[in-house]
């Protein structure tokens, strides 16, 4: 397994008040992403576990782009990868951060 842990300082905290959400599943070409609101409001950590070796630079590029776009401050994001393509990873990250924004009914 390749394990990466990326840390970022964000401009703003992530929107919403949900404490956690899980999107996606660990399957071929897919991934699961767990979002937990448990860091200081201007910190973000993304932890990645993938069985596909040698793609650290691609992961960094996708995650950096995501952090730049949505500023997910306060979120601890954990990924179990099943060999997802970069576009799927980007969509899952967006799906999760949007779901975290939706308030409880």
């Amino acid at each position: 397994m390749d394990n990466l842990k990326l840390s970022y300082a964000t401009r703003t905290p992530a929107a919403g008040d949900r404490q956690s959400v899980l999107v996606g599943v660990v399957a071929s070409g897919n991934l699961e992403v767990l979002f937990e609101r448990k860091l200081a409001p201007h910190e973000c950590v993304v932890e990645i576990a993938t069985p596909i070796h040698g793609y650290d630079e691609v992961w960094k590029a996708v995650v950096e782009d995501f952090v730049e776009r949505v500023s997910p401050g306060g979120l601890y994001i954990s990924i179990n990868d099943g060999g997802a393509r970069p576009d799927i990873v980007a969509l899952r990250l967006m799906q999760g951060v949007k779901t975290m924004e939706v308030n409880h009914e």
Binding site: S20, P51, N80, G82
Partner: peptide
């Protein structure tokens, strides 16, 4: 019914397989 589900040992607890790493396989949080 919407909003009625309460999960035991949710993914945030990370109750997951201790064996899959041996096979270089990814785990799932649940």
């Amino acid at each position: 019914d919407h909003g009625s589900f309460m999960e035991f040992l949710p993914p945030t607890e990370r109750v997951q397989s201790p064996h899959l790493a041996l096979f270089d396989l990814p785990v799932a949080f649940d």
